[in-house]
């Protein structure tokens, strides 16, 4: 059964860039900061592509943001996604608003599976997938992972971690939980959020990049989706975390032990 997969793609600050708060606390310093696709979303795109390669179907990538987010959508298309949706929204976004906008997209697209990064590495919220599942009344499998290591043969062969039942109506998802890995069996349609260890995303090949230019991306004004756009999580101020002060250099192992034992009381 061919699958229809919807994957979210968020434009975020490149984790290699140095991030710090503006002195007035209203945002971060953006000078010299690069942008890229949220690394967790990259894993979600990869998983969707593998599912499509195995089962057939269509991978639709969606982003919410300004015109610049087109770059990340094109990057996902270059990896191999089929078409894109850009919900144009220039203001602040919180998981509540984001999940409501995605709910509206799901109503239009009717995917079998929505794949999201477990969190975006800018606001680090880790909520949108769960909220989307709740809004849709769909099952959720968060923090999808894989039992095999990323060096395993299955990974080399680019097998998806999410395993579909033969009838296509259910999916097995391995997820990372505290202290182990849990396997859930979810009925489709469902929402899956992905963790780091699910796969190693491919990078866009040059032919993929050239083909992506010609793929369709539909722009949808956020206001047209009938969603209340005022965020309920409001950032009042940003600041740099207190810098750790360099401590003391100890002379030898004996002093280290004494300090850890008697002074810091952690041993």
């Amino acid at each position: 059964m061919p699958l229809k997969l919807l994957v979210t793609v968020k434009r975020v600050e490149d984790p290699e860039s140095r991030i710090r708060a503006r002195p007035d606390g209203t945002g971060i310093v953006t000078d010299g900061v690069n942008y890229k696709m949220n690394p967790f979303d990259e894993i979600a795109v990869e998983e969707a592509l593998r599912l499509k390669e195995k089962h057939g179907g269509e991978v639709v990538v969606a982003s919410i943001g300004g015109a610049a987010a087109m770059v990340e959508l094109r990057a996902a298309l270059a990896m191999g996604a089929d078409r894109g949706l850009l919900v144009r929204h220039d203001g602040a976004l919180d998981p509540g608003v984001g999940s409501a906008l995605l709910q509206a997209l799901v109503a239009q697209e009717r995917p079998d599976l929505v794949l999201l990064g477990k969190q975006a590495i800018d606001d680090d919220q880790n909520q949108t997938g769960q909220m989307l599942a709740a809004r849709l009344g769909w099952p959720q499998a968060t923090f999808a992972s894989k039992k095999e290591s990323l060096e395993s043969e299955a990974e080399q062969k680019k097998q998806p971690g999410v395993v579909l039942a033969a009838d296509g109506g259910r999916a097995l998802v391995v997820r990372e939980v505290d202290g182990g890995v849990e396997t859930l069996d979810v009925a489709l349609p469902a929402v899956v959020t992905v963790d780091l260890r699910l796969n190693k995303p491919r990078f866009a090949s040059l032919p993929g990049i050239m083909k992506a230019k010609k793929k369709e991306v539909r722009e949808i004004p956020a206001a047209s989706l009938g969603v209340e756009l005022a965020p309920a999580v409001v950032v009042r101020r940003l600041f740099d975390p207190p810098r750790r002060q360099a401590g003391v250099k100890v002379a030898d192992v004996a002093e280290l032990w004494t300090r850890l034992h008697a002074e810091a009381k952690v041993l």
Partner: peptide
């Protein structure tokens, strides 16, 4: 262009990974 930047990015990733 954006495509050229992506190509550069692919080369970067290839080198890094």
């Amino acid at each position: 262009t954006e495509e050229q930047r992506q190509i550069a990015h692919t080369a970067d990733q290839f080198v890094r990974d």
